[in-house]
Design a protein around this nucleic acid. Structure first.
Length: 562
RNA sequence: UGCCGGAUAGUGUAAUGGUUAACAUAUCACACUUUGACUGUGAUGUUCUCAGUUCGAGUCUGAGUCCGGUGACCA
């Protein structure tokens, strides 16, 4: 027996390295992470990265992940978002251990503030926002101490309590940490800890009129929950110093913050503000528009959670700015859908084929059969009716084909998928010269599964029987933007929206098996792409969304002289 | 202008001082194919610059360049 264990050692990302080191050194026996959305918007692909990271880490190493809503700003947050966020996380396939709210900790946070005041490390400032901002100084110039900086502890205590009791209007007082107004890190120049907001909170109602700032809530919540690794994006790097300072002064559980680069995707935008703009200005159909990089949008588009997780795994994480090619996401989606999608034939832009030598018996329909998914050896099958009159794709016929055109052309033969080989004999046109029918002959002995014709053809076409076809509406979605990084372009990012990113085909012709389409199924319309049923489907109208096209490497050769 | 990050094929990541810098995707060929899909085979293509340390540098040091973040009573 070979002693060498050939283990495919997958390299670790920088967070896995840190965690393995922490586990090895005995610093922690198990790890705790958290996913901390603010309930003021819908989750998008960037959040999905963070979710996969946080939950993935505690799944790989022993531990768990909490869901914590960072609801410290009552004026922007709503319960509506809480529900959608939870739904999205579950849909992605993750389950949190505890559901927390920063607002659950308001009492403790208040006590922490009192502790800081008693230590002489925080004070109530009577300055208004503008003055405080002005006195912060600039990156190159130190700030100026507030005249209220050296109030007595007792006075601070009393003032802070009166703030809590609602004795002051909004904006008149704040609680600030007493650190260093000349600090090179602007965030350390006596940062605000609490502000007065006489606002109704979605969970605590009217109990509070003072609310902690992010910096005085996030790290403290981490600590209360004994989060070991608090993972956030790079723009919070400057906050880490304050994060550590507060934990040290408060002498609470030392959670540690680690930062990674947020995930950007090409041909889309990812900031909450921009996505909101797209919705409110009606450039898209809503948060769940299938072109949106939101979880709900991708779900409606037909993306699978498996493919999104796979994508996150493949791209990994690091600390450098990135714009990941959305093509990679599309690859992951195709790869998964190829395995699970049921095959169906749908003709988008029909041209009629008449099989001149096919004799239909009255009252009888020839039924053919085809596998639902050739990737699956145990695939189920469905029946497909065949008849004298068929539709094929208009683009699958050319009167004057270029070289290597494997489809239908005068005198040329093709296979109809799961049916017969046919040969084109005549092209029928109307008075304008437009092709109305193709007269073909079929080869009876070439039937799929029992082909004794010995004819080899290069092309196989999808088709439907005219009289058996059902109709549906198709929404062909493409990338929302025309440029890779719309935010980087000159002018407004919205100028780069692709007006053709949604093209609706009102009527397409499908084989009857598609009538039984279900919302949780994915379909591959043969040679066309992956589709899923849209919520706009009604009794009278089926609507399908194109999730992603099939890869298509065929390029028509330039034909010479007609 | 200060402070803090970062720079490896087109893109995203790996290589933890030691062969010819790897993997995925993309692109291009070829093969296979009752989906011009899938699959298979091959090819193209990479360490920001300069100097230094070292037998040996993508990795360490210094300088420079470029990119990003940061100056909300937002998170």
């Amino acid at each position: 027996m070979a002693e060498e264990i050939k283990k495919e050692e997958k390299s670790l990302n920088f967070l896995e390295e840190i965690i393995e080191e922490d586990l090895k050194s005995g610093k922690y026996k198990s790890i705790v992470t958290r996913f901390p959305p603010e309930p003021n918007g819908y989750l998008h692909m960037g959040h999905a990265t963070s979710i996969c990271l946080n939950f993935g880490l505690t799944k790989k190493y022993s531990g768990y992940t909490n869901l914590r809503f960072d609801d410290t700003n009552p004026s922007t947050e709503e319960t509506e978002y809480v529900d959608s966020i939870k739904e999205d996380i579950k849909w992605l396939g993750f389950q949190w251990k505890n559901e927390h709210y920063a607002s659950d900790y308001f009492d403790e946070l208040y006590e922490y503030a009192v502790t800081l005041i008693k230590k002489g490390l925080a004070y109530v400032d009577d300055l208004n926002a503008d003055v405080i901002a002005a006195m912060k100084g600039s990156p190159t110039e130190p700030g100026t101490n507030s005249p209220f900086r050296d109030r007595s502890i007792d006075e601070n205590l009393s003032l802070f309590e009166r703030m809590k009791n609602g004795e002051f209007p909004d904006g008149t007082h704040t609680l600030r940490a007493k650190i260093d107004m000349a600090h090179t890190n602007m965030l350390m120049r006596d940062p605000l800890l609490y502000r007065i907001k006489h606002a109704h909170h979605h969970r605590t109602g009217d109990k509070w009129c003072i609310y902690p700032m992010y910096d005085f809530a996030h790290g403290q919540s981490d600590s209360i929950e004994q989060v070991t690794h608090s993972i956030c994006t790079l723009e919070f790097v400057p906050h880490r110093e304050l994060y550590d300072w507060l934990i040290e002064k408060l002498e609470i559980f030392p959670s540690r913050q680690y930062e990674f680069a947020r995930r950007n995707l090409s041909y889309t935008v990812m900031s909450k503000r921009k996505l909101l703009q797209l919705v409110t200005e009606k450039h898209v159909d809503g948060w769940d528009d299938p072109r949106m990089p939101t979880i709900t949008g991708m779900r409606r588009r037909g993306y699978t959670p498996e493919s999104i997780r796979d994508f996150c795994d493949r791209v990994g994480i690091a600390k450098r700015d990135n714009v990941t090619d959305v093509g990679l996401l599309e690859f992951c989606v195709r790869e998964h859908l190829n395995k699970i999608a049921l095959r169906r034939m749908v003709v988008f832009d029909p041209v009629k084929v008449v099989l001149t030598n096919y004799n239909e018996l009255p009252g009888q329909t020839e039924m053919l059969t085809s596998e639902d998914n050739p990737e699956d050896e145990k695939s189920s099958h469905r029946d497909i009716p065949f008849s004298k009159e068929l539709y094929i794709e208009r683009e699958d016929f050319m009167e004057n084909p270029p070289k290597k055109f494997f489809r239908l052309a005068p005198g040329q033969m093709v296979r109809l998928k799961s049916a017969y080989i046919i040969k084109c004999d005549d092209v029928i046109k109307d008075e304008t010269g437009a092709i109305t029918e193709l007269h073909c002959t079929y080869i009876p002995e070439s039937v799929s599964g029992n082909d004794v014709s010995d004819i080899k053809v290069k092309g196989t076409l999808h088709w439907v029987s005219v009289k058996h076809a059902i109709t549906a509406e198709l929404r062909m979605y493409d990338r929302l933007f025309k440029t890779e990084d719309p935010s980087k372009e000159e002018g407004d990012f919205k100028d780069y929206i692709d007006p053709d990113s949604l093209q609706t085909i009102k009527t397409v012709y499908a084989e009857p098996a598609l009538k039984k389409a279900k919302f949780d199924e994915r379909y591959q319309f043969l040679r066309k792409g992956y589709f899923t049923l849209d919520k706009d489907t009604s009794e009278s109208r089926m609507v399908f969304n194109r999730t992603v096209t099939l890869k298509d490497s065929w390029k028509p050769q330039p034909s010479k002289g007609g």
